[in-house]
Design a protein around this nucleic acid. Structure first.
Lengths: 227, 227
DNA sequence: TGACATCGTGTCAATTTAACACTTAATTCG
DNA sequence: CGAATTAAGTGTTAAATTGACACGATGTCA
């Protein structure tokens, strides 16, 4: 069954830049393309927008279909509309970026032909996906410095060292341990748990969880998380 | 001549939130709709994306066609894709926001059925344009605090008081005159001109212009304009 | 029990921010 | 022509924030 319009229309797709963190590097989830064009190249997960779903819904659906990921942090990034970004025909793509916790991340690896790559060493990508990734990275860096989204990339219980390593990996800087802890704890948004994280031959670390309720209260009063 | 596709496609449009500043209020440029739906309602300028133009090009073309504005500051904002945002059929709209200088702004008023409204008192808008306007305002506030874009809303030669009034109008705050001047001049991005601005029964004010070249140099070194 | 590895903690100097009021230079009006 | 009016222009200080910096604590393992 075909569909006919008076004027030509671009095809509309969504693409997702999925970020994960393994404790060392910031990672991106890529899909190996089965079909032409760019057959066998790595690409961002994505696909066509259906008429009965919003853009956000399309992004979540494609994400689940292609990677098995559900209920992740997801935010619209930018819409890419270069005329020749797809060699077949005009395709406009609404790009999203997602942040996934390590638990979910391992599940995604099971998906056929999906794999994680450190952002510093991604293979050549299909279409203009390298541009999309670059934009997503820049956005993530800004977001992380201004809003408490880092927790979306960590397990529900985490140590301050893990949090600091995440910031260092994303921002590409190195931070002073004492100043970092002072600042983060000063916001009073992390609640210490009764448990400790023991791993390796050294002193165990205090575990924390992020308090999103308290954050939303502060947020409404014009509070800004800055790092 | 019709166009047929295997799967249905949403229509794709661009819409522009055009901001101006008259020295007192932040203003938005609206178009009165000639046709149904929302006949006679005010709406954002915009229209369909052609297949042979990028999204940015489409936004600029529509802006010129509907308001006569050219060569303005223009940046993509967000893409709006609620399923029922247009009562006729599925339409996805890539929203932009533009900043125009007073000289250009007066030209725009000549356009048929276009008019400026203070953002604080816009009439009811067609479609989801109120949402788009709200998003644009929020974006403009953030942008203004972090990057020197205020100059896009002022004449090429302006006084510090004009600049301050602009910041106050957009941010909805009131700023300390001495601290404001200290900070802005401290960046060394404003060059004082030989002229003075004389107006009214009082001391004339020093005119400045913004130095974009110097700014781009600083920007590359990771400089952040913050206010 | 000693070596090892990461966790956790405080001070101080330098910088930045925020609060605050009067003189200057033009115009207008009596 | 001088007095009133209006916005322009200008510095100081206290308070808060930032950034640099080093060592004892607590666990494991050989």
């Amino acid at each position: 069954m075909n569909h006919t319009y008076k004027y030509p229309r671009p095809a509309l797709t969504v693409d997702c830049v999925v970020f994960g963190f393994d404790g060392g590097d910031l990672q991106v989830l890529l899909i190996r393309r089965a079909l032409e064009p760019f057959q066998n190249r790595w690409a961002l997960p994505g696909g066509f927008v259906h008429l009965d779903e919003t853009l956000d819904e399309a992004a979540r659906r494609e994400l689940e279909e292609e990677t098995g990921l559900r209920e992740v942090f997801l935010e619209q990034l930018h819409t890419f509309g270069a005329v020749d970004r797809d060699p077949r025909e005009r395709v406009v793509s609404v790009a999203y970026y997602a942040l996934v916790k390590p638990s979910a991340a391992t599940a995604a690896t099971d998906a056929a032909e999906a794999d994680w790559f450190p952002v510093a060493s991604v293979p050549p990508l299909a279409f203009d996906h390298a541009d999309i990734l670059a934009a997503a990275l820049e956005r993530l860096r800004n977001k992380l410095r201004r809003e408490p989204v880092g927790f979306e990339l960590l397990p529900p219980k985490f140590t301050l060292s893990q949090l600091q390593r995440l910031y260092e990996a994303v921002l590409g800087t190195t931070l002073d341990k004492r100043n970092f802890r002072k600042k983060v704890l000063g916001y009073d948004l992390l609640v210490p748990l009764k448990e400790k994280h023991r791993e390796g031959a050294h002193r165990p670390a205090q575990l924390f969880r992020f308090d999103p309720v308290k954050y939303r209260r502060l947020e409404k009063k014009g509070f800004l998380f800055e790092l």
